[in-house]
Simulated assay, not measured.
Amino acid sequence: MKYVFVFFLIIGGSIPLCFSQVEEQELDSISERMIIVAGDSLIQSSIALEEAYVFGKLKFSSYDDKLRYYILRRKTEKVYPYAKLAAERLVELNDSLASIKNKRKRNKYTKKVQKYIEEEFSEELKKLTRTEGQILVKLIYRQTGSTAFDLVKDLRNGWRAFWYNTTAKLFKISIKEEFHPDQIEEDYLIEDILQRAFSKGKLERQATVLDYDYDQLYNKWKKTTKVPKD
Rank of each mutant, 00 (worst) to 15 (best):
F5P: 00
E23P: 00
K66S: 12
T166Q: 04
L67F: 12
Q183T: 12
T166A: 08
I140C: 06
E32R: 14
T76C: 05
A207I: 06
T208P: 12
E32C: 13
V79F: 02
L194M: 11
I117L: 07
S20L: 10
W159V: 12
A38Y: 09
E186V: 10
S20F: 05
N157V: 00
K75T: 01
Q21K: 15
Y188S: 10
Y116S: 13
D28S: 15
D213L: 08
A168G: 15
E132I: 04
Y69G: 01
Y116G: 05
R89E: 06
R68I: 03
E191S: 11
E50R: 14
A168T: 03
I175A: 00
E132W: 01
I11K: 00
R104N: 12
I184K: 13
Y141P: 04
D213N: 15
P228V: 10
T76H: 01
A161T: 02
P16C: 02
V4G: 02
L58P: 07
I71C: 09
S46P: 08
K59R: 14
K75D: 09
K200T: 07
K176N: 07
R106G: 07
V137G: 03
V54K: 14
Q114F: 10
M34W: 00
F7Q: 03
L217K: 07
Q134P: 03
A148R: 00
K153A: 11
L155G: 04
K115V: 07
K169D: 03
E191M: 13
Q216K: 15
V22P: 03
K226C: 07
I193R: 06
K127I: 04
D182P: 08
A87R: 11
E50W: 13
S99M: 14
L42K: 13
E50D: 14
K105T: 06
R73E: 14
I36W: 04
A161I: 02
D64I: 14
S61G: 13
Y63M: 07
T224S: 15
I190A: 11
K138S: 15
L49I: 14
E26D: 10
A52T: 15
N157W: 02
Q143W: 05
F149D: 01
R205S: 12
